[in-house]
Amino acid sequence: DSCIQFTRHASDVLLNLNRLRSRDILTDVTILVNRQQFRAHKTVLMACSGLFYSIFTDSLKCNMNAFSLDPKVDPEGFAILLDFMYTSRLTLKESFIVSVMNTAIYLQMDHVVDTCHRFIKSSD
């Protein structure tokens, strides 16, 4: 028995999902962060965030198509994390790293929190 493993498949699929997001194709939820709106796919959000997993597995909430996040969430921090979900690349801007880390805590993205924490400690 043998098999062919396409080593790029995961990144090829993620790139296509990000293309669908940027063209607003099959996006099924709007996330409201203060006055900014972000369109996304529930499946990608719940695959990457513990908070969204809890929301969209709740039978009372999973059919809603718009969610407002806590007003303490920084839209820029959320935008950076949403891009990370769809690209696997986390933008590190000195001025935003704390806000990204706090937003990742809120979204229950523990591995990103740990990585941000290590980055902050190393840059100190």
Binding site: F6, T7, R23
Partner: peptide, 21 residues
């Protein structure tokens, strides 16, 4: 895939969705 001979294909695996139609 325990015990299976895996051949690694480094090339693209699926079509690329264009940035716009």
């Amino acid at each position: 895939y325990e015990g299976v001979n895996t051949i690694k294909e480094m090339g693209r695996s699926i079509h690329e969705i264009p940035r716009k139609e």
